[in-house]
Write a protein that binds this DNA or RNA. Structure first.
Lengths: 338, 338
DNA sequence: TTGTATGCGTTATCAA
DNA sequence: TTGATAACGCATACAA
């Protein structure tokens, strides 16, 4: 119950604390076999566990990083987090996770608290609205990596999807199969949420590049809870789209719900492609053609970049990493028949 | 860049460290308005951030807890974790998450490391195979809460589903609608994975209680990758089940995949009920009847119990909390027609 | 090969 | 009201 410290071990082993310390740090070189054993025994006997907090205070490194996400429940988050945790595990780091809930205030508080806790670095899925806070960290050369979203103007490492390419992939696939009236479903574009912007804009550009009509009515960009309504309105208007591009799993769910409620046949009446490879894509009917993010690779890269910064704080060149999406052809978009 | 400490603030404000400390801990009572302001200004000017590590060393509390899960990617894990994080947030705690990957060795290492890091408590989704380690913690009265699985013989708080009831819910629903040949799909029952045992056994007992035949062939209890094969064998045998109970989301996916591959009509040819309310349940065709776990409530309870233990380590009575599942009636099981 | 002394940044105890 | 001073548990020069 009462904590046993190095001093206790030292006393029992009849050596000084420093010797025990040496032992713990595996600097056996100048230690007699004899004392080594005595110390080992003493540790065993007392059930001694080093206090890492004390060590951290001295060494100015906690071997823990912080991860602040804007939505812990999101699939992408979970998967990237998993990869981060694994990478940390390999290097003996621990990760403190915090959910900002997409609230900039919370995010800011978390950043401060985690830094007060002396984390060695931070991986942030940013709300995007604390540019000044982020900026200050980069200026202080505090190890920092953004994931999923990046923040314009802040020179920091960032790991994200090549969103433009993802949108292009969808459009090209549709175009090559004869689809012309293609719509997109997304939450409202806002300047600080980069992937959303890039996907919607990428979609628009891809359309133009393929010589396809860009019709405003086919841009359903509204809050998730309003998507049903907008979809209903669009389909009631008569000017039906032949295909829909859902920019993420959340919007996909809305589209599927709508489709189901209105008995729309996929892919014959409406083709669908979405970003995020949802786990039920292959059991759905029809199977869903999706564009997957390499979540694991992204998480791993984020962790690696952070470790790099931690290792040599000084000459680190921030870089933005764009990960290529993977097109997974399944059954929700086919050759156009009608 | 160079860390600014309390000493720096003290010097600039022309007071002693102790006074600054008082200030930081909001013990203004015996402090002149004057000094208070001077300190505030100094802190502001230097951009001082207290070092929580140092404080922890002194106070023997880190305000951080550890959460060790056996599968970070599992939906249940994510949701419970979310609730835990939220509860911690409210109390100013941080959470370190670690993935044991269902490997007892890893789990053990994590427990040791997190304790070395002086976490104030541990919430564990246990592999179940480190009974001695768990036991030692309870003996030392180290704050500990199990989630999802519990460990027989270890007297600790545990938060889990009323699995027996969940199984009964499914069986009763089937029974009342005229189903008789009911099967279950699960990974192999192993004694240290309590929920699995309870669900399978609960299923068996519910069957008996309803006077329904318990036929061994209808117990598909094998490793996930082998489920397809077993299902194929069963359906080729001629003795078809009319309904299937999938004990979790993973097995449900296997059932759905099988059903799709063999063009089996749900619910007419085969009714399905599963534990875990998968997010696509309401967009699938037919919609999926599921039995939901109150994941959020479970996470919250786990955190609360842990805080309770942290607050008064001594007279804490370990307790097992059984959470009632919620039956969500949708379309994958209906009145039997044939 | 091992021990002594000092410091890491706080908080706590006790004087002043 | 404020200030010395001693912890907290460990690591590290330096001495022995």
């Amino acid at each position: 119950m009462k904590k046993v410290t190095m001093a206790d071990v030292a006393k029992l082993a009849n050596v000084s604390k420093s010797t025990v310390s040496q032992y713990l740090n595996k600097r056996y070189e100048y230690m007699s076999e004899e004392t080594r054993k005595r110390i080992a025994r003493a540790i065993e006997e007392l059930g001694y566990q080093p206090n890492i907090i004390a060590r951290s205070l001295k060494q100015k490194t906690t071997m823990t990083i912080g991860v602040i996400v804007f939505n812990l429940l999101h699939m992408l988050t979970t998967q990237v987090l998993h990869a981060i945790e694994e990478a940390c595990q390999e290097r003996g780091f621990h990760v403190i996770v915090s959910n900002s809930d997409d609230d900039p205030e919370k995010e800011k508080k978390y950043i401060e608290m985690l830094r007060a806790k002396q984390v060695d670095g931070l991986i942030i899925f940013p709300t995007g609205k604390n540019a000044d806070v982020y900026q200050k960290m980069t200026e202080e050369r505090f190890p920092l990596v953004f994931v999923d979203r990046m923040v314009p103007g802040v020179k920091a490492d960032a790991v994200l999807l090549d969103n433009q390419k993802a949108a292009a992939l969808a459009v090209e696939y549709f175009a090559e199969r004869g689809y012309e009236r293609i719509g997109v479903v997304a939450p409202p574009p806002v300047s600080h949420i980069i992937p959303r912007m890039e996907r919607i804009e990428g979609f628009r550009q891809a359309l133009a590049k393929k010589g396809l009509p860009v019709v405003d009515d086919y841009f359903i960009t509204t809050e998730i809870p309003r998507i049903q309504k907008e979809l209903t309105r669009l389909f009631a208007s008569g000017r039906l789209p032949e295909a829909l591009f859902a920019i993420n799993d959340l919007t996909l769910m809305e589209v599927l719900y709508f489709v189901k409620g209105n008995h729309i046949k996929i892919p014959d009446e409406l083709a669908i492609i979405s970003i995020d490879d949802v786990p039920f894509a292959h059991v759905y009917t029809p199977t869903l053609t999706t564009i997957a993010q390499p979540t694991f690779a992204m998480g791993k890269k984020a962790a690696e970049r952070l470790f790099l910064q931690i290792a040599k704080k000084s000459e680190h060149q921030p870089q933005v990493f764009r990960f290529s999406p993977t097109f997974i052809e399944r059954g929700s978009a086919k050759e156009k028949t009608s």
